[in-house]
């Protein structure tokens, strides 16, 4: 696994146009050694899933800051299933309250990174779960 280059799609599903965090995330992931694709803003869940499949990514990092995450993020998982690619990890980032973490996980989101977290937490998660590297604190 050591030589594997992890491919990550940073996705902005929904109408949210605030993409500073998504862009910083994309760049931080690239600096961490991953291959990164960014969808740009205002993508439908189907567009995000389609890009993920086309680009054959290992992980999708979703970001939304409007509070539409409960409605929009699970739709991405569904669209991946339709394409037979629910093996792709889906991570949720943005202004997500703790009470939404379980509902998101139940709907197929692998991990949730809410307020107070940053790219470093996402990077560590990917290293641990995709590359199998143990992460110290």
């Amino acid at each position: 696994m050591a030589d594997k280059v992890v491919r990550v799609l940073v996705g902005k599903p929904g109408l949210d146009g605030h993409d500073r965090a998504a862009k910083v995330m994309a760049r931080a992931l690239r600096d961490a050694g991953f291959e990164v694709i960014y969808t740009g803003i205002r993508q439908t869940p189907a567009q995000v899933a389609q890009t993920a499949v086309q680009e054959d990514v290992d992980v999708i990092v979703l970001n939304n800051l409007t509070g539409a995450h409960l409605e929009v993020f699970p739709l991405v998982v569904e669209e991946l299933k339709k394409r037979g690619r629910d093996d792709i990890y889906v991570l949720a980032t943005g202004v997500i309250p703790f009470e939404d973490v379980e509902p998101l996980k139940e709907k197929g989101i692998d991990e949730v990174f809410g307020p107070g977290t940053g790219p470093i937490h996402v990077i560590n998660w990917i290293k641990e779960h995709v590359l199998g590297e143990k992460q110290g604190e």
Binding site: G14, L15, D16, T44, T66, G67, E71
Partner: peptide
């Protein structure tokens, strides 16, 4: 809200999850 800012009525498909949010 974002549908208003993007010129969609609330009954548009793209407005799902966003009506009255921001």
């Amino acid at each position: 809200d974002l549908p208003t800012q993007l010129g969609y009525d609330s009954d548009h498909d793209l407005a799902i999850g966003e009506v009255g949010k921001v």
